[in-house]
C-alpha cells in the first residue's frame, strides 16, 4: 500500500508541476502557436498524470471507471482541440513569431 501511496504522490506532484508550468507558458510564450504547445502540455501530461495519481487512490472500482472515462475523453478532445485551433489560426493568417519579433 505504501508503494501505491508514494507512486500516487509522485504522479500528482509531477502532474501539478506540468499544469503550472503549462500555465506559465501560456502566459509567457511569445505567440499563439507556442502557447498552443504550453496549453497542450497541461491537457495531456498534466491532466493525465493527475488523473493517474488519483486512480491509484480510488476507493472503489466505479470511481476508477469514471476516472478512466475522463482520461479517455480528455485524451481525445484535448489534442483535437489544440490541433483544430492551430489549424484554424493558421488558415486565418495568425502570424508565426520569429526570433526578434515583438511579442503578441
Amino acid at each position: 500500500m505504501i508503494v501505491l501511496d508514494i507512486a500516487s504522490v509522485v504522479l500528482l506532484a509531477a502532474g501539478a508541476l506540468f499544469v503550472v508550468s503549462g500555465g506559465v507558458g501560456l502566459l509567457r510564450f511569445p505567440d499563439f502557436y507556442t502557447r498552443v504547445h504550453a496549453a497542450g502540455i497541461t491537457d495531456s501530461a498534466g491532466a493525465g498524470l493527475i488523473l493517474l495519481g488519483l486512480l491509484l487512490r480510488t476507493p472503489s472500482w466505479e470511481t476508477g471507471v469514471r476516472l478512466l472515462v475522463i482520461m479517455l475523453f480528455l485524451a481525445l478532445t484535448g489534442p483535437t482541440a489544440s490541433y483544430v485551433l492551430a489549424f484554424a489560426a493558421r488558415r486565418d493568417g495568425v502570424p508565426i513569431w520569429r526570433e526578434g519579433d515583438p511579442r503578441r
Partner: peptide
C-alpha cells in the same frame, strides 16, 4: 480570438481536473 479560445479551453480542462480533485478532497467521488 484564438488566444482567448485557447485560454478558455485550457481553463475548461482545468475545471475538469479541479472537480475531480475536489471529489477526492471532500470524499464525494
Amino acid at each position: 480570438r484564438y488566444n482567448r479560445i485557447l485560454a478558455i479551453n485550457m481553463f475548461g480542462t482545468k475545471t475538469v481536473l479541479f472537480v475531480a480533485v475536489a471529489g477526492f478532497l471532500f470524499g464525494r467521488p
